[in-house]
């Protein structure tokens, strides 16, 4: 079974699910618990919610990390077994960089801080650059595949 994760969405799935998304400036946060073979992915758009309580759960990094962790715990995961992977935060369109740069890096910084608060280690990261990334997580074994349309120059 496969599922594409849209912007601002969070999905938690058990083996044998494949979950995937495409990110540019957003962050795809993947969390994996290898013991119970549960994987979660959030497609996070912005760093801070600033009181926007009606936003979708995956929209803001400060809420999305908590929500993703909480759903995984509800499904039987333990915090101490969770491992995170962060992908995205690119600055697309190089000569308009100033307009795009800050949100991608702020997203990443906020995700890192929230994960640190939970004590969840980031085991892999592919962040920054100027290219978008396709991310696929196999919930059978936790394998994460990252691909790009072009090779990074």
């Amino acid at each position: 079974m496969e599922r594409f994760i849209k912007m601002n969405e969070i999905v938690v799935a058990k083996s044998p699910y494949l979950i995937r998304t495409v990110v540019g400036s957003c962050i795809a946060l993947c969390i994996w618990d290898g013991c119970c073979r549960i994987g979660g992915m959030g497609h996070i758009m912005l760093p801070e919610s600033n009181g926007d309580s009606e936003a979708p759960p995956g929209k803001y990094a400060d809420i999305a990390v908590k929500k993703l962790v909480s759903i995984m715990v509800d499904e039987g995961s333990l915090l101490k077994r969770m491992q995170a992977t962060c992908i995205g935060g690119a600055s697309m369109f190089q000569n308009h960089q100033n307009a795009f740069e800050s949100i991608g890096s702020k997203n990443y910084r906020t995700v890192k801080e929230e994960l640190k608060n939970f004590g969840i280690p980031i085991v892999t990261e592919a962040v920054g650059g100027i290219l978008g990334r396709r991310v696929e997580m196999n919930c059978a074994n936790g394998a994460i595949t990252i691909s790009m349309l072009l090779k990074p120059g």
Binding site: T21, V22, G24, S25, A90, M92, G132, R134, M148
Partner: peptide
């Protein structure tokens, strides 16, 4: 690039 990455 990937359309999803461009649009977001």
């Amino acid at each position: 690039d990937l359309l999803g990455a461009i649009l977001e």
